[in-house]
């Protein structure tokens, strides 16, 4: 019996271990080895941190890195601000069929690929697009307006892409808040602002933090949206990694960039967890 249980445990564990070692641990070790390899001549390499040094000495890399981080944080905060009232409405105010219908509406856009969704925005925002034509038709502007290829368009795209990943954890935590607790908050003299601040937000903190972590990671690692909606000015750090690997064939520098991005995202998530007093187990469990 005991031996059988043990066998079952091993069999269940194997896929997880295989997945972790083959797809996560080994590639990362290999990546790290590549990143600390310096090319001194053709096909001769030395071990050293020159690739990392290059990053810190080249302003374009550093600026893009910081910009990507700040824009991702901004996208996360804006997603939260938009998603919170939406989630509150779905979880607490809408009832029955309306509730499921609204939740489904949030989900439906994700049935098509991110590429298609981004093209949707391009159709809306481009010079010959729907918004531009509408503005001309109404008479607000004289000529066609280009709304694509700038930070705002990119931000809109990032928020739109991340929305669901914020709404789901928020709806889940808000649903677990007992209605009578909210009513008690009003009954004892609170108004909408104080009840939200003292009762709803503290209760929803694990959901807010887990949603923010997911959205932040998705934005930071997003490649498609910044490339398609952002302009020349809105360079994203993933685009730099792509160009090192694919365009320049400089795998060493690309790998170093990859590790820096991993370090950055882990650092920002750690800071966010410390600031909100949450732990990773609490928010993800």
């Amino acid at each position: 019996m005991r031996a059988e249980a043990r066998l079952g445990f091993i069999l269940l564990l194997t896929p997880l271990l295989l997945w972790l070692t083959l797809l996560i641990i080994i590639p990362h070790i290999d990546m790290f080895l590549i990143s600390i390899r310096e090319r001194v001549a053709v096909r001769t390499y030395e071990t050293g941190f020159a690739n990392y040094l290059t990053f810190f000495t080249e302003p374009l890399y550093l600026v893009t890195f910081m910009r990507t981080a700040l824009m991702s944080v901004l996208a996360t905060v804006m997603t939260l601000i938009i998603a919170f009232p939406v989630s509150y409405y779905i979880a607490k105010i809408a009832k029955g069929r309306l509730q499921s219908a609204l939740f489904l509406l949030c989900l439906v856009p994700f049935w098509v690929s991110e590429l298609v969704r981004t093209f949707g925005w391009m159709i809306l925002l481009r010079e010959t697009g729907i918004f531009s034509n509408l503005l001309q038709f109404v008479g607000i502007v004289d000529g066609p307006v280009e709304m694509l290829y700038n930070d705002t368009a990119m931000m809109v795209g990032l928020i739109y892409t991340s929305m669901l990943f914020m709404v789901v954890p928020l709806v889940t935590t808000l649903e677990s808040l007992d209605d009578s607790v909210i009513e008690a908050g009003y009954d004892l003299g609170g108004n909408a602002i104080t009840v939200t601040r003292e009762i709803v937000i503290p209760h929803a903190t694990p959901g807010i933090v887990s949603g923010c972590i997911v959205v932040f990671m998705l934005s930071l690692g997003n490649y498609l949206t910044p490339t398609m909606l952002g302009g020349k000015e809105s360079l994203w750090f993933t685009e730099l990694i792509y160009s090192q690997f694919i365009v320049r064939f400089n795998w060493e520098l690309g790998a170093a960039f990859g590790f820096l991005l991993l370090g950055l995202s882990s650092f920002i998530v750690w800071i966010a967890l410390r600031l909100t007093g949450q732990t990773l187990e609490k928010t993800m469990g």
């Binding site: 007992d178 009003y186 004892l188 503290p202 209760h203």
Partner: peptide, 21 residues
């Protein structure tokens, strides 16, 4: 008068203490 201004208070069925405080 809105519930938060009424001179009545309520003890709820499941008490509704604020677990976050």
């Amino acid at each position: 008068i809105a519930p938060n201004k009424r001179p009545v208070n309520m003890v709820f069925q499941h008490l509704a203490l604020f677990p976050m405080m």
